[in-house]
């Protein structure tokens, strides 16, 4: 019948070290939601492409639904749960900008959009519209038509730049 072999994996999730056991077929998506309770990681498709399962792996966005859990051994994983700012209500600048710019309707794509924006802004504090579109192109949004999201990222970039100038 089904095999029961477990594989031990260690990684850092949102700054906390985790030791877990997984099956060879398990994806990071399964592990994050079923075992670790990071429910901000969503699912929208079967073979990759919708992007709502995005997480950051060593600072770069990946689709967690296509990432075998055993492959992240020793890596740093970030989900939206790990994003905290020191400002208002503990929100990061990107979160604030998304909230005030109506950059979410149903909100199902929002965790992934925010993480992708974060990965971009950490590398490129002053992105052009095209660079923002490229960075977010791996996540679909069925509700907003994307423009408010692009605007929110522009605004977040500005807020972050201001903060570093001070």
């Amino acid at each position: 019948m089904l095999n029961e072999t477990r594989i031990k994996v260690r990684f850092i999730l949102n700054g906390e070290s985790r030791n877990i056991e997984c099956m060879a077929a398990d994806t990071l998506f399964d592990t994050l939601r079923d075992s670790l309770g990071t429910m901000s990681v969503k699912q929208g498709c079967d073979f990759g492409g919708c992007g709502v399962c995005s997480v950051l792996l060593d600072g770069r966005p990946v689709y967690s639904c296509l990432m075998p859990t055993w492959k992240v051994e020793g890596s740093k994983i970030e989900t939206l749960e790990g994003l905290k700012g020191k400002e208002l209500m503990n929100l990061d600048a990107i979160q604030q900008a998304f909230a005030t710019n109506f950059a979410q309707q149903c909100g199902y794509c929002t965790p992934a959009m925010i993480l992708n924006a974060k990965a971009l802004l950490e590398r490129n504090p002053n992105p052009s519209v095209d660079q923002i579109k490229d960075a977010l192109s791996g996540v679909l949004c069925r509700c907003t038509g994307y423009m408010p999201i692009v605007e929110a990222v522009m605004q977040a970039a500005m807020m972050r730049r201001k903060k570093t100038q001070v």
Partner: peptide, 26 residues
């Protein structure tokens, strides 16, 4: 298994039922 972006989609389409060993080339 390399990046695994195409492998697991095959798996989900039910095309890798007989695979027991995954070979990590990293």
């Amino acid at each position: 298994v390399a990046g695994n972006t195409s492998l697991y989609s095959l798996a989900r389409k039910g095309r890798l039922e007989n695979i027991k060993k995954l070979v990590d080339i990293s």
